[in-house]
Amino acid sequence: MATLRTPRETGEPGGGAEVGQPEAVVSPTGAIAVAGLPLAGGGSITGARSLRRMGRAITANRKATVGAVLLAFFILLALFPGVIAHDDPNAEIYHRLLGLSSKHLLGTTALGQDMFAQVVYGARPVLLIAFGVGLGATIIAMLIGVTAAYVGGATDGTLNLLTDVLLVIPLFPLLIIIGSYLHGAGTLVMIAVITLTGWSYTARQLRSQTLSLRNRDYLEAAKVRGERRLYVICVEIIPTMTSLLVAAFLTNALYAVLFSSALQFIGLGDPNVISWGTMLYWAENNEAFQVAPLWIIVPGLCIVALGAAFALLNYAFDEIGNPALRPARKMRKARVQRAS
């Protein structure tokens, strides 16, 4: 699962050059610890106080707000489809290829189904796949990557071999091959397949990050006070990588959406499951582009929108964690308060 951006840094709180400042503000090198915002990788993520902090951070950043709103919208669709769309999406009872009307907000498909209902109900499998793969791939990558880096030696070598093999194999053809063996992959199978083939990139990232953290003094300090290795990995290392893990989750979710839709589109998904990808499959089979273009456009737009939501949130978390990436604002000539 390729990503074009560099690995997220776990910021150094306080900055190196300025020693001795409890509320260290800024140093010319640009390391900033701004109170009130979660530090990249630092600051306890648990607890109500930090949730509030995160909420404030999201509303302050425009990208984050848009992404969060979009995502929330789709989650609502997935959770309560019946409330929003009143028709049964599977029922092929209507007249075919009707246009837009108040009864059928998006018209009907060539098979007589209500398109709006399809789109709404189609959100759930997609979101399930997105979150399932996001969580699954990230967790597997975390266990493998962090352990390999921290334990080192032969363990690192073996796990690396495993990771690299999967990394080198082109993902989509692999998915096609596996998918064709499974004769119509339902949601659960889709999650499993994409997760098991896609954790390797994140594992690499997390391994690199752990390698860079490995010689941090606080890990040596943990070792010197007698902590076991598993404890150090789970309690001392992983919590400092939360921002990287969040990024990994969002990236994996994004690619799960795209890959699963693509697989469904070429017919490797279960065609009886209603999801945006399968809608595209049926639309393609019925030459929808000429007769009912909405059948292709709407599910396509939904895929794009959901993907964009994940991507925006990803960029936003990067900016929140690393102030150097924030867009430059016009400097207001603030009234400088002098100690009178």
Partner: peptide
Amino acid sequence: GESGCGKSTLLFAIAQLLVTPAEITS
């Protein structure tokens, strides 16, 4: 001076090497 006394900032200001959000205000 100690850390945080402004000596490095002063230096960068003289060399015109300040980066936003730092600025010479007067």
